[in-house]
Design a binder for these strands. Sequence first.
DNA 1: ACCTGAACACCGTTCAAGT
DNA 2: ACCTGAACACCGTTCAAGT
Lengths: 216, 216
Amino acid sequence: MVNPPVAAARPYHHGNLRQALLQAALEMAQELGPERVSVREAARRLGVSPAAPFRHFPNRRALMTALAEEAAVRLRVEVRRRPGSQGGDPLRRLRAIGRGYLEWAGRHAAHFRIVSARDEIDIAGSAALRQEIRGLRELTEQALADAQATGQVVASASVPALALLARATVYGLARMRLDGHFAQWDIEPDAVEPAMAAALDLLVDLMAGGAPAGRA
Amino acid sequence: MVNPPVAAARPYHHGNLRQALLQAALEMAQELGPERVSVREAARRLGVSPAAPFRHFPNRRALMTALAEEAAVRLRVEVRRRPGSQGGDPLRRLRAIGRGYLEWAGRHAAHFRIVSARDEIDIAGSAALRQEIRGLRELTEQALADAQATGQVVASASVPALALLARATVYGLARMRLDGHFAQWDIEPDAVEPAMAAALDLLVDLMAGGAPAGRA
DNA sequence: ACCTGAACACCGTTCAAGT
DNA sequence: ACCTGAACACCGTTCAAGT
């Protein structure tokens, strides 16, 4: 007579449709790319009517933006978790942040594509998303400020200017891979990750004053 | 009895439908963004049947790729035309190439979005497109090689490594603007162009060995 | 050689109605 | 509170048939 003790017995029909939709959308993004995620198809996969998703998201864009917010949180967590990113030698911290970003973007290509798919999501309308972008920026600026204080980075440029350059480089590398540009750079698939890491190291070396700085 | 002397009298119905489709698609991309370009709507605007475009392009993606090829040619022409990009002081050449790229991307946002919309186009399948990307790369590498030869750029890194870093930076800056990231950098709209130029100058300065190099 | 008309299998979104 | 069923106005693409 009692209900079965296990909560969340029935999968979707009711239950957490919102979360199930996010997961189905992520799976479709992984299979077909974010631009091919279809609300109708997600509903179909979950066995609900085509109209059901619109009880949880006002439109397709809102669904994709929610997915991007999840992805951004994971990216930040991944970067923060990376050894060396939280303290210690500022140059090492700088490299750790950049590599953490690049590796995450490579390992979770679907998530990264969603986060940076401005056509599919609503960055301006998502406080959470703006917050994540800003968080990474602050982490970078702190490392640069510390590095300038210890004389490890040239003082001829301001911290915001250096941070913007670093951000553009990392974002540019990640997007080049995403957008399939590396084939035009005579870089074999296996050599892409090392080439990106080398470009990042080169930037840090240049910021440190030219010659290769000691790497931890 | 003779045909009217002016060629291309009738606008589209027959005539150059292919070219007309490209133009209509570009206009739609400017109005709504590349992802909202619709083959059907383009046909409608030109007064032809929904099936007509498929005589000229095998599918929507091929239309968008053809548009991207046009855009890439214009980008290269613009960069080559830029004063200082063709010879003379190598560092000045480097800056001219980068600025030419960034300014074109800003001034022709729709075209740039199409060129870099990997979801919409087929880079791998377009020799023309790959060719344009490569052309800009070679221009950059030549400038860097010359700069190393005259001792204006540090010798501690290889030309391809330096070129990749430069490319990632410029592409990253252009995409950050496109993807609406600058709002998270506390940069007012009016200050975006100068900030991008400053980031580029900073990179060149760092490549030149740290201190601000003399700028022509 | 180029285009039309009609069709097919999809979309996102709305809305009255059901539980 | 959450979901269904049916509808609306769209898509890209195919294909026989027309000129």
